[in-house]
Design a protein around this nucleic acid. Structure first.
Lengths: 203, 203
DNA sequence: GTCTATACGAAGATAGAC
DNA sequence: GTCTATCTTCGTATAGAC
């Protein structure tokens, strides 16, 4: 549920206030959305001191949210890369959907994807947020493309499949939350597997 | 772009203030999100009189948004059903993606799907909104399943494919907005077509 | 680095006149 | 049905002390 030990600066010390705030922001955003998550919520959830917000985040809420998006993005990349060790795309797909299933069920379907939340809610003037979202999606895409390329799937097809995986799973998470069921994620996972099997077989 | 003549009560008169407000809310929400869209915005955009908000929507903003979600949902169902006249699922898929491409491009990638926006932003206490979102997704799903069943695709597979279509396309719209490109939608459309072709051929 | 207090603005909702 | 005025709440951000 993303309450993973946050990567601290250099050595492995107790997470700093700042790091805890970023992690808390990510967790709260996926439940309450971007505008639904206030500084007060983050302070309360992280236990960080009130007065240090603008010390750590001189850019205000936008900066905190940007960090939270990138943090969540890296966390997911970790999930992908860990499952990708033996180079099996289907295994990665299953790990991916399993991870989302856990998030949904553990939160009783209150939590979704914080990156999508920011993507949907970010104003046009907060272009730094849109950029962060775009970067994160690109990172996921890149990881998946690499995996498919290594299995000799063509460049173009790998690109299309990776995009479809990200889009379909993120969309499924939205459906799951709305319907309070993991069925959409299961159904989408199964169809994506069909698609992958076909692509890998003909590669 | 959803600036369609709103279905008025019985006869075909000029849309009422109320109807205009609902349509405006749907349009604004897909650009600015749920919390990003204020009553003031809706008043301004629709040209409706300020003082009549709580006359038309005694349930306040929640009621307005719920109506907007259902209105947008019905609009999309219309798009699906219109393309489904000759019963070709691939044709419907293409019409679906084409419609979203238009929304994205016409708005310079500022507009997404209002239903997804509400799904992501709705508080847990606004269960009426989650219910509306869920109903809308179910309606789309139902239409698509019917189409596939008519082509002799099995019940279970039809269900899975329909869910995957909705999830992947909605997810693609999110990606398109974030990356300011229609490429994700094109890529997803192509892979979904592959999936449909296979399912229809083996049915 | 962290605290309190406060300024400032926005938005939802209500009351009561016309 | 529609208007204006106002109440209230809340959230971001800033200022200045410790």
């Amino acid at each position: 549920m993303m309450q993973v030990i946050v990567a601290t600066r250099r050595t492995s010390q107790r997470p700093s206030s700042r790091d805890r705030m970023v992690a808390s922001a990510a967790m709260l955003i996926r439940e309450k959305g971007l505008t639904g998550t206030s500084f007060g919520d983050v302070i309360e959830h992280s236990g960080a001191p009130r007065g240090s917000i603008y010390h750590h985040f001189p850019g205000g809420k936008t900066q905190l949210v940007e960090d939270a998006v990138r943090y969540a993005g890296e966390y997911i990349v970790g999930t992908i890369d860990r499952a990708a060790e033996d180079g099996d795309p289907v295994k990665v797909l299953r790990a991916f959907t399993a991870a989302w299933r856990r998030v949904l069920e553990d939160s009783d379907f209150r939590a979704g994807c914080p990156v999508v939340a920011v993507a949907v809610e970010a104003h046009e003037d907060e272009s730094t947020l849109t950029a962060a979202v775009s970067d994160v999606f690109a990172r996921w895409h890149e990881s998946l493309v690499g995996l498919l390329r290594a299995r000799s799937v063509s460049e173009a097809r790998s690109r299309r499949l990776a995009t479809t995986m990200v889009a379909a799973i993120e969309g499924a998470v939205v459906l799951c939350r709305a319907t309070r069921s993991v069925q959409p994620l299961n159904d989408v996972g199964r169809e994506l597997e069909t698609l992958l099997d076909e692509a890998l077989a003909s590669a």
